[in-house]
Design a protein around this nucleic acid. Sequence first.
DNA 1: ATAATATATTCATTATGGCGAATATGTCAT
DNA 2: ATGACATATTCGCCATAATGAATATATTAT
Lengths: 124, 124
Amino acid sequence: MSSIKQVAALLQTIGQESRLQILLAIGEGETCVCHLEAMLGLRQATLSQHLMALREAGLLEARRQGRFIHYRLNDPRLLAILRQAADVQGVPLPELSPSPDCNCPNCSKEKGPGNNSSRCEVRS
Amino acid sequence: MSSIKQVAALLQTIGQESRLQILLAIGEGETCVCHLEAMLGLRQATLSQHLMALREAGLLEARRQGRFIHYRLNDPRLLAILRQAADVQGVPLPELSPSPDCNCPNCSKEKGPGNNSSRCEVRS
DNA sequence: ATAATATATTCATTATGGCGAATATGTCAT
DNA sequence: ATGACATATTCGCCATAATGAATATATTAT
């Protein structure tokens, strides 16, 4: 595949609202799918499809941890591209760090009463 | 429109082989449509449509010079994005400078015999 | 005014991609 | 083994975008 085709493929893969949100939400860290689902308000199947596309494009890596699967960026330079693009458009790039206070219903650590499971936590 | 939407729109607009070729061919300079047509082997109508899309996305500026229309990038940072993307993909970004030896049939300066018109030149 | 040329625009067709619904797979708890 | 849960996969539908053909517009030359 010509190099131009490859560049086009990359840009096309990330040139979509949901995918951008996913990438920004993952950021430099590692994020499990349930976080993303809660954060972005995407349906599970839809989200999974996008994750698959990003995986197949070589942009994401998946790591299984029990029932949970954690995704991380394969290359932090991807974020640089997004910043550049936002720069050209003259808009601020929202910071979507999911880890701090994710309201994923499965991950309510130190949240509302009666909920205690440490699911969605990385447990070695 | 949300900033993410805008970034997505930008990436989507340039995430296509023909558009990338156009942007690379124009580069830092200014290029007339006939050059592009010859260089990229795109049909005139197709090319014009892509140029329109890029114009509407605010990425290109057009300047009329007699019958000829010259396009230039509105923001050189676009090229930086392309370089970054190529970088992430680990491929070289081809340099497509059209000006030096464009083989556009209308612009054959110091080319084959019997052809002399300086068409496609910027004549003030 | 007419013809020739450079580029743009319109329209119909086709391909591509995202989405929703349904289902499958893999892991843990019992 | 069974059930519950997290995630993945498949499939059909629809919207969007790219393509091709035809035509229009603008500019220069005659």
